[in-house]
Amino acid sequence: MTSSMLFNVTTLAYMASMVLFFAFLASRNKALGLGGSLLAYAGLAVQTVAIGLRWKESYDMGVGHAPLSNLYESVVFFSWTIILIYMYIDLKFKYRIVGAFVVPFALLGMAWAQLGLNSGIEPLVPALQSNWLLYHVITCFLGYAAFAVACGVSIMYLIKAQHEENNASGASAGGLMSMFPPTRVLDDLNYRAIMIGFPLLTLGIITGAAWANYAWGTYWSWDPKETWSLIVWFVYAAFLHARFTRGWVGKRAAWLSIIGFAATIFCYLGVNLFLSGLHSYGNSKM
């Protein structure tokens, strides 16, 4: 058994979970929803083992390090955190249907990692040989995952709100839309997911700064990655404050959350693909 096989199993589990969730949306059969959730959790369990196994494999190869060092490993970890945060939301707030809008993000990540990225275990370049790597990556990605959940919930909000506007007559339409939590709840879930993500992103930025200070002697150098993480932080800070001024709940909050996640994805991937800096995976400066 290799970690790579288990990652394939994980991908299949997330795919099956997504299919069940879509069937759940279409049929409103509760058993399908339960199946979707259980498959997502099973995938999470397999993925957890796979990540542990990959960690061990790196030690067997004599280049032991936490599996968080290149783009492949980070995308896999990102998928893992998304399902983890979804599990928290599902178990705590009991809105299973959210999975239909969150699991696809995790599946997308796994599929991309398995099909399109180089999955070889590489030795760590000197710049990454630090425990700070672990703290920094884990906090950042948990934050990103919470924002992914918030984005999924916001998309649900916009769909539901649009639908309610079109059926303003009040005749409860039933059907698909009755599966969605009420807009009030979606708005609240969005806020809650961001309340989880924001402190984690803050910790991620702080651990990154602490690491930079430890390794290079500057805690902040306006490197594109750093700056983009700050941009993301500003957007969500604006979101939090916007709730205090009238009119910035509901649709506008949902849009702000989606924009925030777009900025997050740019911070994570766009900066590496389009801009240059210290964080380009795999070819960092020493």
Binding site: W222, T227, I231, F234, V235, A238, A263, L275
Partner: peptide, 14 residues
Amino acid sequence: LLISLALTSIIGTV
């Protein structure tokens, strides 16, 4: 201010 800081910060990354 938060949105302005976010938007203007982009300049320096490009």
